[in-house]
Design a protein around this nucleic acid. Structure first.
Lengths: 155, 155
DNA sequence: CTAAGTGCAAACACTTTGCAAAACG
DNA sequence: CGTTTTGCAAAGTGTTTGCACTTAG
């Protein structure tokens, strides 16, 4: 029990350190709201929308507003701690996994899963990018059915 | 001149045939609006938003409404003649290129370019999709700077 | 004829903004 | 203390919907 405590605390301190550093690095201030939003994202590594983050954060900080959640999320994106994940016209989702990765969207349940990329360089994926194009960012999305939803259908 | 005429006419007839067939195949009716919207998409192979399609189509059909353009585009997507292209929260764009391909978005000018994919199967792109996932669709997006915009910067 | 499609305006969901009050450094 | 950030409500954007009128088959 004491052991678990230590790990959790260490995890949280480390988390807070990166937040502190990242905010400072981009010239932003540390606020209770930003910390709470970031904690919420880091503690559950799913892909919540701003509204879902709002709901979660309201439990520990009932006075926070949705606009502030958007604001905090934007700042976290700006300082590079969080990635935005867009799936068609759905609400933007937020992802605290900074590893280069793509996303799998389940057509049935709407869940989002991270998919590792072998490389972030288009040429290594066999993509034929014509001369003259400079590629900054590669975004790979898969659609289909996740194991939970597929199980029912395929016997 | 006569030659060009013939080609253009043939192109248009072929185009109309596919539209006829695709609509019929999905149980939709042919309308002047759908034909005009489809022609507009096919004649300029760029990636216009619904609003841009609306502007273009209004020139030849001034009474058409934006809602109808959305409606027509949706039907064209449903019968498989057109693909939707979403870039973050931007307006949905529409693409009449049915070859399997990805898209390159220029950060500077916002232009969209088609990028050929070597395969539509994730495994052939080296993507590690965990067991149990069924993949229907693969969507690859690149961000960066296109040749026109890049030229100025890199001397 | 009659079901499907159009055109309009109003509704919608998600996101951003303007501004006074509060809080960080 | 001076800025930055918050919280609220209001505006904005892209898209969809409800409904009377029109049209394709």
């Amino acid at each position: 029990m004491g052991h678990v405590e230590v790990i959790v605390k260490a995890g949280k301190n480390h988390r807070q350190d990166s937040l502190d550093r990242a905010l400072a690095g981009s010239g932003f201030r540390m606020t209770r709201q930003r910390q709470t939003v970031y904690d919420s994202l880091m503690s559950r590594r799913d892909h919540p929308s701003a509204d879902e983050v709002f709901s979660r954060v309201k439990k520990t900080m009932p006075t926070i507003s949705l606009a502030t959640v958007y604001n905090c999320l934007d700042k976290l994106v700006e300082c590079g701690l969080v990635r935005q994940v867009n799936r068609d016209r759905d609400s933007t989702r937020y992802c605290a996994n900074l590893r280069e990765h793509g996303h799998f969207y389940c057509r049935e349940c709407g869940s989002v899963h991270d998919i590792d990329l072998p490389s972030s360089r288009p040429s290594e994926l066999g993509l034929a990018v014509p001369d003259g194009f400079t590629v900054d960012h590669l975004d790979v999305n898969l659609r289909g059915v996740c194991p939970e939803c597929g199980a029912g259908h395929q016997v």
